[in-house]
Computed example of a mutant assay.
Amino acid sequence: MGPKLETCTELLRPLRAMLGLKQFAMQRGQFTADHVPYAAAGLLTELVLRGECRASDLAHHRIVDASVVSRQVGQLEQAGLITRRHDPADRRVVLLRATPDGERAVAELERRKAEWIRDALAHWDDAKVRELAGLLGEAMDDIRRYTIKDGGCVAGPVTKEGTR
């Protein structure tokens, strides 16, 4: 049966607040590095975590248009944070990989974010943070699966009755 609509509406408030706080912290420079383009930091992080892959795979996973990824790839390449190479198995395919500088930049950004969360949740115990991480991870996996269908096409709108 799933959760009630009202319960999911309650969930939206803290999710919006969390995203807003992240945006605020990024704008204040808490999650930036001097040589990482602000808008492309998330893409660089994704590339470091996923490893070498195609730009189209990054776009699909991040649920953004390929043109967004293309622009950010250009910024990251110009900053020396990623490289491109042709796939030896199919020369038409270009693979992206983070450079050592890109990997170091992401490690620094991730450290700053983890410190920020640690300081903000200083009164929480480790088990509670692990539980939250697990629940959010499960929720995001389910939401991603629900949102991305048929090779990357976003599912159609849901009506008031919850049907397509």
Results as ranks from 00 to 15, higher is better:
Lys22Leu: 06
Thr7Ser: 12
Thr99Tyr: 03
Val94Asp: 02
Val68Thr: 15
Ala105Gln: 08
Ala59Pro: 09
Met1Ile: 01
Arg104Gly: 07
Gly74Asn: 09
Arg84Val: 00
Lys4Gly: 05
Ile117Asn: 05
Arg97Trp: 00
Leu76Phe: 06
Ala40Thr: 00
Leu12His: 08
Asp57Tyr: 12
Ala127Tyr: 02
Leu21Asp: 10
Gly162Gln: 13
Phe24Gln: 13
Lys128Thr: 14
Leu81His: 10
Ile82Arg: 09
Leu15Glu: 03
Ala89Met: 04
Pro157Glu: 15
Leu58Glu: 00
Gly42Met: 01
Pro3Arg: 14
His123Leu: 14
Arg104Ile: 00
Ala133Tyr: 08
Ala33Tyr: 02
Glu161Cys: 04
Leu49Ile: 09
Val129Asp: 03
Ala25Asn: 01
Leu11Met: 12
Ala59Ser: 14
Arg13Cys: 04
Ala122Glu: 05
Arg71Val: 04
Arg16Ala: 07
Val48His: 09
Pro37Ser: 02
Val69Phe: 01
Met140Ile: 07
Asp34Ala: 15
Leu96Lys: 09
Val93Met: 00
Leu136Glu: 05
Leu5Lys: 15
Arg62Met: 15
Val106Ser: 06
Glu131Leu: 15
Pro157Met: 13
Thr7Trp: 10
Ala33Glu: 09
Met140Cys: 06
Ala25Val: 02
Thr99Leu: 10
Gly102Ala: 01
Gln72Ile: 00
Asp87Tyr: 06
Thr147Lys: 15
Arg112Ser: 11
Cys53Met: 10
Gln23Tyr: 10
Ala114Phe: 03
Ile82Thr: 11
Val94Asn: 06
Thr159Ile: 00
His60Glu: 07
Thr163Val: 08
Asp57Trp: 10
Val68Glu: 04
Trp124Glu: 13
Thr45Gly: 12
Glu131Asn: 13
Gly2Leu: 12
Arg104Pro: 04
Pro3Cys: 00
His123Val: 14
Cys53His: 01
Leu76Trp: 05
Arg92Met: 01
Ala39Gln: 11
Val158Pro: 00
Ile63Tyr: 05
Pro14Asn: 11
His123Tyr: 07
His86Pro: 03
Ala127His: 06
Gln78Glu: 13
Leu5Pro: 10
Ala39Trp: 03
Asp90Tyr: 03
Cys8Gly: 08
Arg13Glu: 14
Met26Arg: 15
Lys113Glu: 11
Leu81Arg: 08
Ala120Thr: 04
Ile82Gln: 06
Glu108Tyr: 10
Arg85Ser: 08
Trp116Arg: 13
Asp65Lys: 14
Asp34Asn: 11
Tyr146Ser: 13
Arg104Asp: 04
Ala55Glu: 01
Leu11Lys: 07
Glu161Phe: 01
Gly20Gln: 13
Asp34Val: 11
Ala139Trp: 08
Val48Thr: 05
Tyr38Arg: 15
Asp101Tyr: 05
Glu103Pro: 07
Arg111Leu: 06
Pro88Val: 11
Arg112Asp: 11
